[in-house]
Nucleic acid binder design. Structure first.
Lengths: 212, 212
DNA sequence: AGAAAATCTTGACGTTCGTCCCAACTCGGT
DNA sequence: ACCGAGTTGGGACGAACGTCAAGATTTTCT
């Protein structure tokens, strides 16, 4: 008897928790868009509330404080970006195909999700000053590194060669290119972006040692 | 007669202007240190005033507004950092010496001026959101690129080879390494920093094509 | 249908921000 | 010695911030 009752209550409780979590993620996603538009330094809770369909008070109903909200938003950025190239890796049958499709998607997302990417770099930079962001940033950074690692190791495998450096180095180089291309893209320096696009292929070949 | 009088007044005026400019640069330097400590998002004019030997009101006597102050501070960052490797280039007599001394100074300044460097990246990122920072950021970025260009082209020359890519690519790669090393340094991941140090030399060799 | 719990709105609180003003002070020129 | 321009300190202003509480509204369960 009590078992049945508790099970019912548990179901109710679980459904409410799920609903609660669903709204949390929805609000965090809205916040992500607002943050991407305004940047961390200029985004207030009122900005986020106004860009959502709820009022300011709701923010504190679903989030303990501003840090809680932003932390949640950052974590959802991860889900968006961290598996982006996996299908490219999965369907590639030749080194050239993998390289070309990777480069294409690399610069496609650069242009299409530019505001979101600049937010990532913004928050990564905040972690240089605010230690409470560092754990999440390092975790996401690790996943990005792993994602790049999957691409380049698969590329090396298709080329029948080996990686010249660690995945960490590969990530550093590719992310450096991405970061700079983003700056130039947002500034409208399209020719500079195009130049980096050409160089990306060359850098990938640098990362692989073996038969050319 | 009037000429003499005007000349006197001119001298006085010029001296006052010089004094005015001197105090501006002094205050901007103080601001630079405070910004490096707290980051752009968290630094208020009161923070800056408190870290200087003057009061808040003085800030608005010497600077039109907060943007004027920060812009001035950013410009002074340039002077600090943009000629850092020139003496290394000047005194190098062999490729190995240039490479080793460059790498050493690279990671020395990383550790020694870490707060200042994270501020640079912070402000560069602000320019992704605030267009009014972009001109200064791009100018400084260009000078940094030119500085790296001087190093690697001299390195290529000493090696008797040619650069494989443009200075822009060289800068992208080296700055990507620096940026990531800074994150790891501030997080206390010394082994990751050491790994990047080893990789920097290899990357420099990648940048040069010719006799090994 | 009615009660209870949840969700949401509204408005206010104390604080901190950039900005500004005015009085006090300093110092070189007459 | 005195005067006036230049310089500095301290306080005050309105706006915007994060946070919170109390009531209205909606949803959910019996």
């Amino acid at each position: 008897m009590t078992d049945v009752v508790e099970t019912k209550q548990d179901k109710i409780a679980r459904r409410q928790v799920d609903k609660f979590q669903a709204r949390r993620t929805q609000l965090a996603t809205d916040a992500l868009n607002t943050l991407a538009e305004l940047g961390y330094a200029r985004t207030s809770l009122r900005d986020i509330a106004q860009n959502s369909e709820f009022s300011l008070g709701v923010m504190h109903y679903y989030f303990a404080d501003k840090r809680d909200l932003i932390t949640q938003a950052v974590r959802q950025y991860e889900a968006v970006c961290v598996t982006r190239y996996d299908e490219v890796v999965a369907r590639a049958t030749s080194a050239e195909q993998l390289r070309d499709e990777f480069v294409e998607m690399f610069f496609d997302t650069l242009a299409e999700d530019a505001p979101l990417h600049r937010l990532w770099y913004d928050l990564r930079n905040q972690s240089l000053f605010d230690e409470s962001f560092r754990a999440d940033v390092l975790e996401i950074d690790g996943h990005r590194e792993a994602m790049v690692g999957r691409v380049v190791s698969r590329y090396a495998s298709l080329r029948g060669g080996e990686l010249t450096g660690t995945p960490a180095v590969a990530y550093t180089l590719l992310d450096g290119i991405f970061h700079r291309a983003l700056l130039h893209h947002l500034t409208g320096m399209t020719e500079a972006v195009a130049r980096l696009r050409l160089e990306l292929s060359k850098v990938m070949d640098y990362l692989v040692a073996g038969p050319q």
